[in-house]
Design a protein around this nucleic acid. Sequence first.
DNA 1: CTTTGCAAG
DNA 2: CTTGTAAAG
Lengths: 306, 306
Amino acid sequence: MPKRSKKEAAEGDAGEEAGRRPAKSSRGEAPALYEDPPAREVTPGGQRFTLKVTSWNVDGLRAWLRKGGLQWVQEEAPDVLCLQETKCGGAAVPPEIRGLPELPHQFWASPEGRPGYSGVGLLARHEPLSVTYGIGEEEHDREGRVVTAEFPALFVVAAYVPNAGRGLVRLEYRQRWDVAFRSYLARLDAQKPVALCGDLNVAHAEIDLRHPRANRRSAGFTAEEREGFGALLEAGFLDSFRHLYPSVPHAYTFWTYLGGARDRNVGWRLDYFVISRRLEGALCDSKIRSRVLGSDHCPITLYLAL
Amino acid sequence: MPKRSKKEAAEGDAGEEAGRRPAKSSRGEAPALYEDPPAREVTPGGQRFTLKVTSWNVDGLRAWLRKGGLQWVQEEAPDVLCLQETKCGGAAVPPEIRGLPELPHQFWASPEGRPGYSGVGLLARHEPLSVTYGIGEEEHDREGRVVTAEFPALFVVAAYVPNAGRGLVRLEYRQRWDVAFRSYLARLDAQKPVALCGDLNVAHAEIDLRHPRANRRSAGFTAEEREGFGALLEAGFLDSFRHLYPSVPHAYTFWTYLGGARDRNVGWRLDYFVISRRLEGALCDSKIRSRVLGSDHCPITLYLAL
DNA sequence: CTTTGCAAG
DNA sequence: CTTGTAAAG
């Protein structure tokens, strides 16, 4: 692992330094606990982190780049960067990103014949031992939703889970996905610890969205999707953020663009680092960079001491 | 006709007053003759104008409104306003326009099942005697291209002539249109004088576009379209601008958005006031407001002494 | 409300 | 290059 500069250590301020700190919420809802202070950069056992992973649903890589998202990433300086909803891949990835010197090992997945839809990227400082695309099931591997990179100590999985859609038109498909994806992750976990990073398109519990009552039958908060997430945890995984901050409310990673939801912190926690339970002792911190702009999601960052 | 205020009389400056005068062309190509001075507001016989008509291809009424096009129109203060490529009609016309006190009589045409395409509007200070839509032929009346208003002394026809398309895919249709439209105008002209106002989608002669050689087979400058325009003039009409300014070059009304064509005045004269020959004595001026921004076309204004 | 690709100009 | 659209979120 590379040495850390003083500036990199102060990653809690990165959003502010970039001048992209939005107007303070009039309700002051977004708590500072998990975003303001410097990271807890040690485990409870006192080990310093050795791996920093950032995940961000960019809602269109090219628009995100125009909005300065990449500058924030450079200040955050993660070892691995997982991007979701790139809405482009391969040749359409802008050269500023392709040529990033800090993250030279880049792997992009995008749908077959559907430009502008879905798409994920995994970018790494160090070359992975191996990289795979999809989850090994024909039905689920057509939409550019998963890239898995194997490193010496763990698998990093960048994922963009299918949205159940308006009117839940795709909820049934989503349930098939959840089963298949859980099985995929369990298979990986049988080999090596796993860090699943991404937009899982579900708010697990009532604490994870602003208006749980109103959203009982909304995509991302149906019983079906919540149970899918619960089943994943039961299969041997940990919701790293909630594990560290079991009762912090108003901690969201997504705010619809409609109606100024973000200014009022009317949001959802849809982005996660879900890690193998046996990584619990390696977990330093799991942070939500809720003030960082550039998308309808904010970035999140994981610190592990491996 | 209403009295003219001092400000209205100085319509040559309207674009400038609105603060929308663009940077001067580096080549200084746009001559001042037909745009800078106050209008010739009298006929050669010394009669003062009594009717002022402005025509503008707005390339999307709603975007044009956001860009401030309406303010310029209010300073120009025409008695009749003809708009082309509104890309909306009826209920989609913004209320700021629907409620214009100076032009309360409004008539909008738009295509059947094709929102966002074509569309023309005719707005008048005084109520017309009658208004008709289209040119009376089924094949040509599905795209919201023509509104005709009958006034005591003449017909005003607002028209957006079909573009022959990239690769001239619609040139054949355009030729059928030209025949039918000419016949329609001749029929009107048999009743009362006509002022045809609009985007005729043809540059008549080499003087009417910057690169005639390169555009011999481009939509808007094919022999077929040019001959169609010639046939219209032979049917008893006058190209009012060219009649008054027979040899003024670089007088354009359209510049493609591609490659900064407008800054270099690489344009086409596609917008016209074509009037019945017997209105020659009533013709005061025909002006091209080439510095007025808000669309890829500029507005044009006709002054008649009826 | 925003991104994308598309058709059209 | 810009408009408007649709699909998607």
